[in-house]
Design a protein around this nucleic acid. Structure first.
Ligand code: NAD
Ligand code: NAD
Lengths: 227, 227
DNA sequence: TATATTTTGTGATTTGTTTCACATCAATTT
DNA sequence: AAATTGATGTGAAACAAATCACAAAATATA
């Protein structure tokens, strides 16, 4: 049965990503060990929160000794399946799609856009290093590269239709840039990125002059946001 | 004092945006009245949640009669300061910046990118309808157009430096696309958009075959996500 | 006008998340 | 070897968010 799947990254997972980025930086600087309060300082949370988050993901340090950075990163890579490569497809090679197809950080993080797709034959001329195919080659590519996750950058009006097609061909997760709530089967993960909403809420909060910061900020805080 | 400002849109605010999009669609279809359970159905939440959210933002309906769509949208416009225009600047006219500068939905929602900026003189040739200036004209433009919110699409390495400059010139809110935690004064709102993290978490959840859906989905749910 | 019906609005309750407080362990010092 | 120190890990407590349950209000019906 198809239904609206609202999917929001859990805050603890968001924080884990922050810790990881921080650990990568520290390792680059030659640091080998880290304490929960170091990570806490760098990421604007409390040290208990760091330890609780780690414990949620089954990560253990050594008492008194803190955490070994290499060890920690290795465990995280396993948790996030970063030891394997992940093949992605990108649908819609318009303004946004083109930018995304050129974004090098995806590759650095083992996520490869193996092909992009567009209905517009004009766009199907190679626009970046990655080939641009017409939609009728979707199944072939998805099967060949065992693609499970897609990036959807088509206009609002086509988003549902394209999502349906993706799912028919075996896609299980979609990062959706179109400002619509997609109706999908229960086992499909949808992450909606809505830049207008993002901007509007910044404007909203700027107008209220309210914010959340690392050093837990006052009564206004919990009235209006969560972290 | 500068510090890490972690800012996450409150879920109730996210839902309000969903309701609004839905109301706009309904109005377009000629519908005039709406009940909490209609909105709930369309957005994948419960009707109590809709009413609680409305009450948080001080929105009242009429018992038995539901809500008047025009009235509701008007109230929301006021809450989100959508009756006025909001001028924005966009810094970094690379791949992503160019795409964003061409995004028409911002204007449709009363958010105007009045100018874009880049240090690269090559990019300073007009790349879209909006002018591309060098950074030394930032202050002039921000002052002239009373800009309070900026979109930051520069490389990771320059993000903090550019953010500092923006804030010196009076910017109070930033939507940041660079994958770094910016250190800013307490009264500045930062919203981080991290596409890699977004993709990685979809991959993570796809691997776990876990999802949240509108019809509250069992034990697996609360173990891993929140909505 | 009285009664039934429908939908809102909100206290009370449940569920989830963060912070607190401290036992536990490992390393260092005496 | 014992005492001290400094960090982790985790139940308990505090806090926040979502759901439940129902009174109150508005409308429809008899
Ligand atoms: N441009 C931005 O910065 C931006 C920002 C946020 C969100 N978005 C959203 O991302 C989506 C794409 O935006 P854009 O600015 O790149 O639009 P665009 O019009 O430039 O590109 C859309 C592309 O999708 C293709 N397309 C249309 N229907 C298709 C179909 N059925 N199958 C395959 N391809 C199809 C078109 O040919 C076009 O190339 C939109 O939903 C938009 O709202 C864009
Ligand atoms: N391209 C994408 O799809 C994408 C996706 C997610 C996140 N991002 C992030 O967004 C940012 C921009 O990405 P991009 O792909 O557009 O990069 P890019 O290199 O194409 O563009 C960056 C632009 O910023 C300009 N710039 C550099 N330093 C500057 C400074 N000090 N002041 C003003 N302008 C400066 C450069 O001249 C360039 O035009 C990066 O932080 C990237 O990680 C990009």
């Amino acid at each position: 049965m198809k239904q609206i799947t609202k999917y929001i990254i859990k805050n603890s997972l968001k924080r884990i990503f922050l810790y990881r980025a921080c650990l990568v930086r520290l390792r680059l600087m030659g640091v080998e060990k880290v304490f929960s309060y170091t990570l806490a300082n760098e990421t604007g949370v409390t040290s208990e929160q760091v330890r609780k988050d780690f414990s949620e993901f089954g990560i253990k340090g050594n008492k008194r000794g803190g955490y070994d950075i290499n060890d920690l990163l290795e465990k995280m890579e396993k948790i996030f399946h970063r030891n394997k490569d992940h093949n992605l497809v990108l649908i819609g090679m318009g303004n946004l799609g083109l930018a995304l197809s050129k974004y090098s950080k995806f590759v650095q993080r083992n996520m490869n856009i193996v092909a992009t797709f567009d209905i517009d034959p004009f766009k199907q001329k190679q626009r970046s290093d990655i080939p641009v195919y017409s939609m009728d080659r979707l199944k072939e590519i998805v099967d060949r590269f065992r693609v499970k996750v897609a990036i959807l950058a088509v206009p609002e009006i086509s988003a549902q239709e394209v999502a349906d097609k993706l799912i028919r061909h075996g896609i299980k997760g979609i990062v959706n840039f179109a400002p619509v709530l997609l109706k999908v089967p229960q086992d499909v993960i949808i992450s909606n990125v809505n830049l207008c909403d993002e901007l509007e809420s910044v404007i909203y909060y700027v107008h209220k002059q309210i914010k959340v910061d690392g050093l837990k900020n006052l009564e206004l805080l919990y009235k209006d946001m969560k972290y």
